[in-house]
Design a protein around this nucleic acid. Sequence first.
RNA 1: GGCCUGUUGGUGAAGCGGUCUAACACAUAGCCCUCUCAAGGCUACAUACAUGGGUUCAAAUCCCAUACAGGUCACCA
Length: 549
Amino acid sequence: MTNKDLANAIFPNITKTIEDYEKMYPERKLAEGANVTRFAPSPTGFMHIGNLLSATIDYIIARNTNGVFFLRNEDTDTARTVEGAVEAINHILKHYHMLPDEYQYKDEIVGEYGPYIQSERKEIYHAFVKHLIEIGRAYPCFCTKEELEATHNIQEKNKLRPGYHGRYAKCRNLSIDEAIEKINAGVEYTIRFKSMGNFDKKFMFDDLVKGRIELPENDEDFVIMKSGDLLPTYHFAHLVDDHLMHTTHVVRGEEWLPSVPKHIELFQAFGFKAPKYIQYPLILKKEGNTVRKISKRKDPEFFVSYYEEKGYPYEAVIESLMTIINSNYEEWRLAHPDASYLEFTFSPKKMSSSGCFYDLDKLDNISKNILSKKTKDEVYDGLLDWSEKYDKDFCDLIKKYADYTKNILNIEREQKKPRKDYAMYSEIKNKIWYMFDELYDTKEKSYEYQSITDKSEIKSLVSEYLEKYYDESDDKDTWFNKIKELASLHGYAKEVKAYKENPGDYKGHVGDVATVLRVAITTQSMTPDLYEIMRLLGKDRMLKRLQNL
RNA sequence: GGCCUGUUGGUGAAGCGGUCUAACACAUAGCCCUCUCAAGGCUACAUACAUGGGUUCAAAUCCCAUACAGGUCACCA
């Protein structure tokens, strides 16, 4: 009996060889320097900020080099698959404008290197496993979970390095006859890789972020194919898929660094060239005085969906990630304020090698800047999209008054230094609600008058202003001069300076009067430009609001 | 415990042997501007190079230890 017999006993129906697959998936015809990246999440949970970081790096590398960015669904963990995860991933890539060049969604396959769903690649993996068995680099393992656990405990007790290696790799020494016998008898088994490495020997590995690292060789006979569903483990799927799909750069978190020796040995066993690895540092979170990995249970900002719910424009989230991704990004942005982030050239060397905290304050700042640069139409559209999903009533309202809403959003926008008063769409309603009668009339109001509190004074100021002074056709200077005039007649200083110089001569200053008008009309003591607000509301609506004071 | 990675102010970080009494951005504070706010301008702030040894004429930068933090050691990815 030979290894070939063993391979045939395990995979009697696998007829294609790895050479056949090599032919089916030939080298990509890409220009020199074009990189192939992939975003390969597993649908075992919802996308988190680290996933998005990863996808952004993948995407920018591909776009920078006119390469290929593809999406691969790593669904080999059938037990932990979460319903809706695949849809969520698709939605997020779309939301962030990172559409893959190759992907598979249900029956639709785009790209020549599919299937792009691992559970549909079983036959391919099996051909590769079969090959490994034939050349004597893989074998079936019949150990039960209990047996493995027992060895593990013994190793731990004796302070030995745990794992299935060396003399603890029991099934490694099983004869082919014995193995075939067990298989024919229907005993469950996994397939393990037969390692030739020596843990005490080191080799050099180049990570594009961390640089040259010395790692011990792998000596684990790790599982490459699981029992039961016969799907490959991550390590093996990575080998087969990234080889056949011709991935040039694997972008993944640094938690993968310790398994690099496994991957390298696997690639060597097949004589394949390993891809380049970009293993980025983790996003951490500070809690009191301790630092920990950002967590799905404790940190709402962990999930990518958080940012969409809050209504951050997608560019802002990416922008904030880019500042983490490359240290020279902010400098570049300063020089290219209006360029797309894709015009920036990503360099793994410019990536920090230490874990970082994701700064939500910074995100707010970035987002304010981005929103302030948008046109009223863009902001309106963004607000519409957001409210459609998260505030239907408000959505209907701004749809009903589309042009009016745009004008509100345009207050102090078309100027050199536009207003920056919101970072996310969810904040807007709270800042402009009083501009809509539907909200104004129904809301329980409190008027935040400031320095002038005398009710009759307030009343006479406001009604006199609206009846005698306000004219919709006034320009801004005329408008303000009239308020000064009104103030002066009532004993208030026309200029704040004059008041400050001789406070005893006046009851207050023009600012106090303006505040009275502002509060009477909007209930708020702090608003954007009052002139614009009055123009948008119009005299009639202001008078109506007055009557209800 | 083994292996690996990291450690510059509250945060992201620049720095790659002399130009570091350490840039820039965010946050914070104050002042100016101003009818309020949001901005904008100016200024300040933080006792910032984990610690200890080397190497060197010279170290945040190179080397070695220590400490601390994180990752990893599954038929999970």
